[in-house]
Design a protein around this nucleic acid. Structure first.
Length: 152
DNA sequence: GCCAACGTTGGC
DNA sequence: GCCAACGTTGGC
């Protein structure tokens, strides 16, 4: 079992949006960055834990958790000419982009702002801190445990 | 809205 | 097969 941090712009798709889906379960699609895709396609597995992060908003923060309920499959939006995620170079034989399904699990009692994460020495190795600009990223087990404690 | 970091692309 | 250019991302 692995742990991940998924970023989403709350204006586009928030933690509450996920919770509102039937069965609290939604498709994590629209990933169009190769580094993020590679994690999604090759590493993210059913049962993995997900930290739900709100990005590109007033207070970027981890706001809750979710669970992966279906591993990677081709993102249907890449084949849909009407979609903003349409990719003319993708084919059914050779899909370029992938998605997973996740289920809402919990909302943090207290959202954990990026600013605070950056100030915590125990979290200095997080990809979120070191690299940024990556919408799907691995989280270590010790980071996961600490973050859950901080958000509780 | 700037621009830096990243993986991929494609011309040669 | 090198490497410059490109598209995406996201904090500031």
């Amino acid at each position: 079992m692995n742990y991940w941090l998924f970023k989403s712009e709350p204006d586009e798709y928030s933690l509450d949006d996920l919770k509102s889906e039937p069965g609290h379960t939604g498709r994590w699609d629209g990933i169009r960055n190769y580094q993020a895709r590679n994690f999604l396609r090759d590493k993210v597995a059913e049962g993995d834990g997900v930290l739900f992060y709100h990005s590109a908003c007033k207070v970027p923060a981890i706001v809750g958790t979710a669970q992966v309920v279906r591993a990677a499959y081709p993102d249907p939006a890449q084949f849909d000419a009407e979609s903003k995620y349409f990719d003319p170079k993708a084919t059914a034989d050779k899909p370029r982009w992938f998605c997973v399904d996740i289920r809402w699990q919990s909302e943090f009692a207290r959202p954990l702002p990026l600013k605070e994460i950056k100030q915590n020495r125990a979290l200095a190795e997080m990809v979120l801190v070191r690299q940024g600009r990556l919408s799907i990223q691995p989280v270590s087990e010790s980071e996961w445990r600490l973050l859950l404690k901080l958000g509780a």
